[in-house]
Nucleic acid binder design. Structure first.
Lengths: 244, 244
DNA sequence: CAAATAGTGTCTGTCAGACATTATTGG
DNA sequence: CCAATAATGTCTGACAGACACTATTTG
């Protein structure tokens, strides 16, 4: 900022802002993208579904608040949550986005491997995974946030290693391909997908031992871990240039 | 957010958050990337240089506040500022980033064509364009914000039309190439750059009339305007995969 | 063996970088 | 004519999509 607060500024005299985080938590289950929603137990929007989130504590960064809320809503351990990739999306600050007062919200996207149903802790009545294509009307401006999150995730798959965040620690290339196909809503050619993934240095790393795993009936697939890279060179561009 | 504010929440009883915007305003002049900085006239960090910015007004979105501050610092008209591309970078919320109180700041990047020296209005002692490679120690966490902004701009040039925001309304392909070379710090092959730019539908649009403009001594160059597209298909990837 | 999934090999058109060449201006 | 900049053309190697084929498992 350029200067001090307005003339004679006193934090308690000025109309204060509340600051919250909102989370778009995604997972891939049954070849469909799912998002974690909570049912609101209080006004406003009581009974509506909303993105999980909540207020920043007085000495907490938005990043920490997001991880705390994520742990509360999913039942994941603090240590698990600490290592997860949280992607800060953007901040929503329209004056009337919350009817009660002035609330500025920092939105995050989180990517999880498939998990059991959330235990629905925290303040929410209950939490549930929804098919991302069929969520209805959400509270506040959360539909907008969810749409922005979806766009961002799809774009980030092209040039970052984010897709591995949807997979368990060890995964097959088929599972990784499923993530791309599900998020992008396209079908990819398996041999070409394989070639491109293995050509990106540091994207995936073969798990040494002969351990393999079956995915139903066919030949067992080799296992991989996420590699050291964070960005993809070259990127995996999605087909047909449909980024609009 | 999932639920109402904490038990018995009253906006004035709770430790309030102040919300500000900070702007990384870039331009290309003399083949160097420059950033607009202001000298602080008050404590803390009195005498230090900082990114322009300021507090949100009670009923103002961060986006509007950023445009207002930009107009104040650069002397650009309200109408000019309204049409500019402002890129929201991310939000900085570490509890101690401002020694006075809890300040959450929404950072923006703005790209301008080369402009005269700013008139240095607003609260700042003075405002000045600095070579982006030689800025010293900045106030608050503004060095971090500036570095993040620089990274984002470089990446966005690859897959969006952002580069045209650095150019005047009508520009030559040579000028556009200068933008890429300056921000990325590389030299590009002119014929190939030309071919790729013209191959992207909607990136640039030839200005019809035979009007041309000279850049010193050689052959006058054809003029172009920014096209209708916002994203580049295919993208203009920077050479040597140096995105780390 | 048939079905299903994993993995390899090959062909071909497109496009990238590299660079030669022509065009148009001022001095 | 020379220097400087703009614009066009060409060559070649790398890589993308498409797809045929082999490998390994279960029923």
């Amino acid at each position: 900022m350029t200067a001090g607060a307005p003339e004679g500024y006193d934090p308690h005299a000025f109309a204060p802002f509340a600051v919250t985080v909102d989370l778009a938590v995604f997972t891939v289950r049954a070849s469909r993208l799912h998002v974690l929603l909570v049912e609101r137990g209080e006004e406003p929007y009581k009974g509506h579904w909303a993105l999980p989130g909540g207020f920043l504590l007085p000495r907490e960064s938005a990043d920490l608040a997001a991880r705390r809320e994520l742990a509360e809503e999913t039942g994941l351990g603090q240590d698990t949550v600490r290592g997860l990739h949280l992607e800060q999306l953007r901040t929503y600050s329209e004056p009337d986005r919350d009817p009660r007062m002035r609330v500025v919200s920092v939105a995050y996207a989180a990517l999880l491997p498939d998990l059991p149903e959330p235990r629905g802790g925290g303040d929410a009545v209950r939490a549930k995974w929804w098919d991302a294509g069929t969520v209805g009307v959400l509270a506040f401006d959360h539909e907008r946030i969810l749409a922005d999150a979806y766009d961002r995730i799809g774009a980030k798959l092209e040039y970052t290693c984010l897709a591995t965040a949807f997979c368990p620690a060890e995964f097959t290339l088929g599972e990784l391909q499923q993530v791309y196909e599900t998020v992008w809503g396209v079908e990819l050619d398996r041999p070409n997908f394989r070639r491109k993934v293995l050509n990106v240095p540091g994207f995936v790393q073969a798990v040494e031992g002969p351990p393999r795993r079956t995915g139903g009936r066919g030949k067992p697939a080799a296992l991989y871990r996420a590699g050291a890279a964070t960005t993809l060179h070259p990127p995996l561009l999605r087909p047909e240039g449909r980024t609009e």
